[in-house]
């Protein structure tokens, strides 16, 4: 596979929407007939980052943070208010055919497939749209069908598929032209745990096989932990953090949890750290990260311990901590 430079370069990207607004009620409605008021909403404000070829990056943030708007600009759906973007050497919003043939955007589960016909027929349409040679098409289609385990589904009309089944077929359709850059907006939303796992495994395999660059938004931290070593955290249109997932925990989660089970339960352990819970003889203690080893050693020395584990806090909590602290952007090479 040819070595590629950074696939995605974003510099000073901004998107401002001007939206009409008025108070509720008839009087406000009448007033708006003669005098309309507008408000500027800064959906994305001065966002900059780069993603090298082949990297999978999680794009995280609460609802309305600017994630989807950014993805829409990177995929060419939206024109930005200002800023520069280069994806695979193209300016996305020019929507040059060579660019659109090399990327894909998965957003929701009703983009690629025709509702009334089997997914196989929609795949055929994508073959024509992306001008995939017949022999390649059959190989890639069969590969997608196998990896996503949708052999039985692709012959049913799409309207008869469940949400998860449709999502898998949608992803297969979106990847038939073997795109080099994938923009995935909540690819596992609304799916059960098994289906989520299968899609995660598929995306990881796709990235491994083809060296595809992936920018993914998800509210499921399991998606992020399984797929992304690097995350970009965004809120109110600005990047709060850009770096490795591990570094994120180190920086924003100064505590770890020690779970200890004593052979003879009973002793008071609150002196070792903040008591989080006591359940069936198992005590959880919140301890400053730099003290964890020492506290664990002291516990092992002082008591007969049948089990002891040290855990990082859940990523959800760490992200929450990032939003709470509204930290300034931290540049971490990855």
């Amino acid at each position: 596979m040819a070595q590629r430079d950074a696939d995605i370069r974003v510099s000073g990207l901004r998107k401002t929407f001007t939206v009409p607004e008025r108070e509720a009620g008839l009087r406000a409605s009448l007033r708006s007939l003669v005098r309309r008021t507008h408000r500027d909403v800064h959906a994305v404000a001065e966002v900059s980052f780069e993603i090298p070829a082949g990297e999978v990056v999680g794009f995280l943030g609460p609802n309305g943070a600017g994630k989807t708007t950014t993805l829409k600009m990177l995929s060419g759906l939206l024109h930005p208010t200002s800023g520069q973007v280069s994806v695979l050497g193209h300016v996305p919003w020019r929507r040059e055919r060579d660019y659109l043939r090399r990327m894909t955007l998965v957003m929701g589960n009703r983009n690629q497939l025709q509702w009334d016909i089997p997914a196989l027929d929609s795949f055929e349409m994508n073959r024509a749209i992306y001008r995939i040679p017949d022999s390649d098409f059959r190989t890639i289609r069969d590969e997608m069908v196998e990896l996503l385990e949708i052999g039985d589904l692709v012959r049913k009309p799409v309207r008869n598929l469940s949400l998860g089944e449709r999502m898998k077929a949608e992803i297969a359709a979106a990847l038939l032209h073997r795109p080099q850059v994938l923009f995935l907006d909540e690819p596992t939303i609304g799916l059960d745990v098994t289906m989520q796992k299968r899609i995660r495994a598929f995306l990881a395999e796709y990235n491994r096989r083809y060296g595809a660059t992936v920018l993914l938004t998800s509210h499921y931290m399991a998606d992020v932990q399984a797929l992304c070593r690097r995350v970009i955290v965004i809120d109110h249109g600005s990047i709060l953090y850009d770096g490795s997932l591990r570094e994120l925990s180190a920086r924003y989660a100064p505590h770890q949890t020690i779970n200890v089970t004593l052979t003879d339960p009973g002793p008071e352990l609150s002196g070792y750290g903040e008591l989080v819970s006591t359940e069936a003889g198992r005590v959880s203690l919140k301890v400053a990260k730099d003290q964890t080893s020492a506290v664990a050693a002291r516990l092992l020395a002082a008591y007969e311990v049948s089990d002891l584990t040290i855990e990082d806090p859940p990523v959800e909590d760490v992200i929450e901590q990032v939003f709470a602290s509204s930290a300034t952007t931290v540049e971490v090479s990855s």
């Binding site: 829409k72 759906l77 055919r97 659109l100 690629q112 992306y130």
Partner: peptide, 9 residues
């Protein structure tokens, strides 16, 4: 329209 806009046609 989004789905149509990201296609090379």
């Amino acid at each position: 329209l989004s789905g149509m806009l990201v296609r090379p046609v």
